[in-house]
Write a protein that binds this DNA or RNA. Structure first.
Lengths: 189, 189
DNA sequence: TGCACTTTTTGATTTATATCAAAAAATGAG
DNA sequence: CTCATTTTTTGATATAAATCAAAAAGTGCA
């Protein structure tokens, strides 16, 4: 039963009471989506948090009519239009599956309602956003101080399969470089 | 009584019970520091959160032996070695006053202890780190998509006084450019 | 008040990566 | 399977900003 695995995972972030776990479980759904399904549309209110169970998704936004990949989601990853959920404004991010995927989802509003009733879930929320902050800080420093080549190599070390499974253009914008530059980097390993 | 103003400010972020306010008040201290005082040293454990009451401070880290200004703190700003507080690792950030300043400070450990006792303070913590996340996201996009000149002009619009009060080199690294480039930008307004 | 030291300015050169352009390869619908 | 469309590769050129270098201006201490 996969929901149980997910709760287990949350429990390692911060211990959750049985009541909190039960309440959370009530709000979590698992669904299968075909390849190339848009599960969150730009300009519509962001409502859901997704957690990848199987498959591959990406979140992206547009800048000067170009799609910029913000993140890839592999099993275990939480993917959502974070800034829109947090600010309650229409989403600037879209999310789509790149492969057939099974995703947990829950209403963000439901999560917020649970915060009121369960102090430990509020703590979970705090710790998760904290982790997002720390990861983003790393990303900021990578963009500022590392060359295209260094960022490419980091990805190659940490998630080599992404370069096979995701189109080059998506990976390029994720790394903050043009497809041409990534193609050339790849040519000389 | 300035602590009262600060509590008021927190109250606008999320409503705090009187008990929570009283507990928080117990942990808050106000102190005056002369210009150029290091209030947080790199490599030492980060222990405090500072909130600027008067004056000007900056937080910075070193990269390739160069100091990089991470943020400036003006009255109302919270300044801390955030990532070290959150990760419990020795600070990679230093913090110093650029002018004589009055700062509120509190032990981060005390804040964490208060989280256990006061759900509403945990919420305050969650909402504050959330705001940090959203601000950092803006910064990341500015670095990725805006030119030096655009970032300079944004600063000029939002905090023109910083260019008078902080040394050019500090502002340059804050903007992610070299002092030479900033000097040239400034020359042609 | 003068002198060492630091910061800022100005100029010349280099460089990484974007942009523009077009060919080659891959993909997918009918 | 075939053709249209999209993606990737390859090449030539442009450019913003870094780097290197040195002069000028500013700062503070003795």
């Amino acid at each position: 039963m996969p929901v149980q695995t997910l709760l287990q995972h949350f429990n390692t972030i911060t211990p959750l009471s049985l009541a909190a776990q039960a309440a959370l479980k009530q709000c979590l759904y698992l669904e299968r989506y075909p390849k190339k399904t848009m599960i969150q549309q730009q300009h519509r209110p962001a409502q859901h948090i997704f957690i990848v169970h199987t498959g591959l998704v990406r979140s992206f936004y547009t800048h000067n009519d170009k799609e910029i990949t913000a993140s890839f989601g592999t099993p275990g990853c939480m993917v959502c239009a974070m800034s829109s959920l947090l600010s309650y404004e229409p989403a600037t991010y879209s999310i789509e599956t790149l492969e057939e995927s099974e995703l947990f989802y829950m209403e963000f509003a439901a999560m917020e309602a649970l915060y009121d009733a369960h102090h430990d879930l509020e703590r979970l929320g705090r710790m998760m956003i904290t982790q997002y902050y720390l990861d983003q800080e790393k990303e900021l420093k990578a963009i500022r101080f590392q060359s295209s080549e260094q960022r490419y190599q980091t990805l190659l070390n940490l998630q080599p399969e992404l370069l096979q499974r995701a189109p080059l253009g998506h990976v390029a914008s994720y790394l903050g470089i043009t497809p041409e530059t990534l193609s050339r980097l790849r040519a000389r390993y």
